[in-house]
Design a protein around this nucleic acid. Structure first.
Lengths: 191, 191, 191, 191
DNA sequence: CATGAATGAGCCTTCATTCAT
DNA sequence: AATGAATGAAGGCTCATTCAT
């Protein structure tokens, strides 16, 4: 549910705004509501009506990625192998973070602008926690790793890949990030 | 050498500016040259004469930490145990990053304002590279880890600790960071 | 007659809008048509249809007070004692002004948005004028006081009480205003 | 002391800003810092440096009037006749309020932007209080009139004159105001 | 008739940088 | 060399009013 407003034309505007915002995010341009408005060719007020703050818009852009991750997390829980399930989930998370700049920003943010974002994040952390618990119960992961570490570690790896790779070349960044994740997982793996 | 200008009073001004900037950095306040000038009780022009940009001032604040790390890196090379030398060096690096906000910013920056900063960073990366090479030669570290990964990984861990711990409580952040480093080193260690 | 439109549902809308507006006025919140619409749960357009401007709505809110004052003025004319009649009328006027923020605004305004408001105000000034004329004819009031002074003086006293008393505490403001009126009347009284 | 900054050119700017602001105030145009800047032909920042808020500028414009009133109040204290002293002081106050729109605004404001304004206002109220006390001690004024009533009453009379006279024609407004003051004083006078 | 999305002028404020004194 | 006043682009946000649905 991405909660687009009801009226047909308003919905189209909403879509357009988000689309332009996504392009800007992908291009590494910091979101500015006035700027977005100008690019979409709408009045500032329209953009403000749909997204009262930059954060609200950014979170909306990040929503799709969050939802995909949630979907994957739920599938992962069906995996018999607790370690494979956890590792796969984390790999997907990293890939998404590195690919989608809005996701890394929203993930690292301590507070959210939209309730929906908070829900999604909580769902996601909870899925991660369950995957981690299963792994810990199976004795395949370091005992001192808690579910509160998952998000920071994923953010850290994505950040490391960004520092390594510069702003451009998402592919290279993805490779680097997966390499870092592999090393880290090696360190977290037990049994 | 931190390149203080020659004349006595100018040198005192320089020191004062850096001192105030360090306080601001430690307090988490973003550096603004006008702001610094007001707090030091000098004209903006004076501050601009010494530090043409915010980055120049920030790098100057970071210099001490960089120098200390270099010093430690050189000592580490004297250590007989290649793994212990590398691990110790990285531990110090992380601790410094978490403790000194200017350091993490300068370290992650792709470009430098001051030539001196570039030199220091290169020296430091080179020391890290040599420590890594020794460890690789001794077969105690994953072969796919290159010296270009060291900085990003350290930045990533510091970032992860920041995401975990929030802005306050440097002690808790340090603990977290060391825990993350331990896990990562476990993954990098071989033999 | 406060001119409510004819159709039943439209009339209900009209009532609701005015009711909410009165609450806002009483709470000291500046009227904004958008704001009112949101609070009433109607579209802006509906509110605009009924009240083309903020002033129109404000005047409508003030209408009840104006009508009550007119009623009192008519009763006052029946009083045998010209001075008591005038003084009583002014006391009521002041009380209303201090109590009802919409009234003071509408009273002091040089122009009106609604013809009905203009009528009411003229009726009221005319009543005041007749009360004043009677008093002057009886020689109980300063000769240099004209009917054109009545409104300004009442507005002035209400304003004075507001300056004295701050925004809150309508009771204290009423007391103050009556005290000021008493002093002024003492000055206006003759014979 | 109107505290103009020290440097020669800055002082000239300060003067120009205040001069333009005074014109705007006299013309009944609401002060806006950007607007003032444009009219003076300066950058916005310059105006903001001198006057951080609209209120600060308005109070600066009002300062001259406040100072003149203080001066008159001090002279009034030298008058042997307590009633004449008080009445004269109030007459001057009213005249200034009616003539200078900045003064009436600043006088009625519950809080001040500039400390200097607060000082001046307090000095003025204190002078008024002393004149009132003398009159009360001499038994020539109503006992229930306190020094806290002086300001509100003066503001009220000025407001009444404004309601009566409309925006233009300061002369007519002054006459009206003095007439109202006369009536009020008659009411306050005793003995 | 009712709705409420869209508009965009207009106001406010900050801050990096320059340059006259 | 030091000072700090001036600049003005840039960005943020609100709100009265219109008009397509």
């Amino acid at each position: 549910m991405t909660t687009p407003p009801l009226r047909k034309d308003a919905a189209r505007n909403w879509e357009q705004i988000v689309a332009v915002a996504r392009e800007l995010v992908d291009a590494g341009v910091p979101l500015q509501l006035n700027d977005v408005a100008r690019r979409v060719g709408m009045g500032v007020g329209t953009v403000y009506r749909h997204f009262p703050t930059t954060e609200a818009l950014l979170e909306t852009v990040a929503t799709r990625s969050l939802e995909l991750l949630v979907a994957h997390g739920e599938q992962a829980l069906a995996d018999d192998d607790p370690w494979r399930a956890l590792a796969g989930f984390l790999a997907r998370t990293i890939e998404a973070q590195v690919t989608d700049a809005s996701l890394s920003a929203v993930t690292a943010a301590p507070t959210d602008a939209l309730p929906h974002t908070t829900e999604l994040k909580q769902t996601l952390w909870s899925l991660g926690g369950r995957l981690l618990d299963r792994a810990r119960a199976a004795g395949v992961v370091r005992a001192d790793l808690t579910s509160a570490d998952l998000v920071p570690l994923m953010c850290g790896i994505a950040y490391a890949a960004a520092v390594h790779g510069g702003a451009d070349d998402a592919v290279a960044r993805t490779d680097t990030a997966q390499r870092y994740l592999t090393a880290l997982l090696e360190g977290l793996h037990t049994g």
